[in-house]
């Protein structure tokens, strides 16, 4: 069983020594104890055989050649990163690496050259995207759009120069604008109120004129209905007369009931 001590060696120790044994680094007593354990422990013995076989298999693998342009591509890929900013930060870190006296590190870290490198590196990191054709194209389009908007809306750049941007004027402009907005809102509100009143009056006027008309319409409807009802009543009376004749005819012994009723219908 794994973990048992066989021949003065634990399986864990055997596992630890296995790599050295395969590498041929075991000697003397250690080697003999290892061999004894290997003979005594079937689990460790199998493990050793498998590890040796695995190493043999791995020996079949040869080093593969990288793509021809790999190194060149790497240098090209990293050349974009090789700006002064990155170098400046690298340089500053080198200069401030631990192990040097604190005073030297402080002096290097705050030297004008290091600070200038930092500033230049940061500025480059910020503004380098702006130096791309894509950014220039976007900026051009934005300028064109703004100039179009100004032209269409009648705003002239020369007018902007005459703007009074003093705090006093700005405050006055603010209050004037606010007053204009409030006035506009109030006006709109008044208009809406008048509109709603007019609508209510119209609705009231229309409902009063509609009532007599509706009564007349109802009467007309009843008149239209009455001829039909009269017809139905007449038909009912007529059928009553029919049935009476049928009943009378049944008392005539010379004729059938069906014949009499048929005759009556023909007369009609």
């Amino acid at each position: 069983m794994y973990g048992e001590s066989k021949s003065g060696m634990q399986c864990a120790e055997f596992d630890l020594l296995m790599t050295d044994a395969i590498d041929g680094l075991l000697t003397g007593d250690q080697l003999s104890r290892f061999e004894q354990h290997k003979t005594a422990c079937p689990t460790c013995s199998a493990m050793f055989a498998e590890a040796e076989a695995g190493l043999h298999w791995l020996g079949q693998l040869e080093e593969v050649d990288p793509p021809v342009n790999l190194a060149r591509n790497i240098v090209l890929a990293t050349s974009g990163l090789a700006n002064e900013g990155a170098r400046a930060s690298l340089r500053s870190v080198v200069n401030t690496t631990p192990g040097r006296p604190l005073w030297d590190r402080m002096r290097d870290a705050f030297s004008p050259r290091t600070i200038w490198d930092h500033v230049r590196g940061t500025a480059r990191a910020i503004f380098s995207p702006m130096a791309t054709p894509r950014f220039a194209m976007s900026a051009g389009m934005a300028f064109f759009s703004l100039s179009m908007v100004f032209t269409v809306s009648g705003v002239k750049i020369s007018d902007l120069r005459n703007l009074d941007l003093t705090p006093r004027n700005l405050t006055r402009t603010y209050y004037a604008t606010e007053a204009r907005a409030v006035k506009y809102y109030e006006n709109i509100r008044l208009v809406y109120e008048i509109e709603s009143r007019v609508r209510e009056l119209r609705r009231a006027a229309s409902t009063s004129s509609v009532e007599p008309e509706q009564e007349n319409k109802q009467k007309n409807k009843q008149d239209q209905k009455s001829p039909k009802e009269n017809e139905q009543r007449q038909y009912q009376n007529f059928s009553r007369q029919d049935s009476a004749s049928v009943v009378i005819a049944t008392f005539d012994p010379g004729e059938s009931v069906i014949g009499e009723s048929a005759r009556q219908r023909r007369k009609l």
Binding site: V64, P67, T78, A82, L90, R91
Partner: peptide
């Protein structure tokens, strides 16, 4: 680290084969 581009190229030349082999054996795809 001091900003020598030639040194960086030399490092790439020295190590790219070894790194490629580790990556290839680990990932299994060229």
């Amino acid at each position: 680290i001091a900003g020598d581009a030639a040194a960086w190229e030399e490092i790439v030349q020295r190590f790219n084969r070894r790194i490629y082999n580790i990556c290839y054996r680990f990932a299994g795809s060229p």
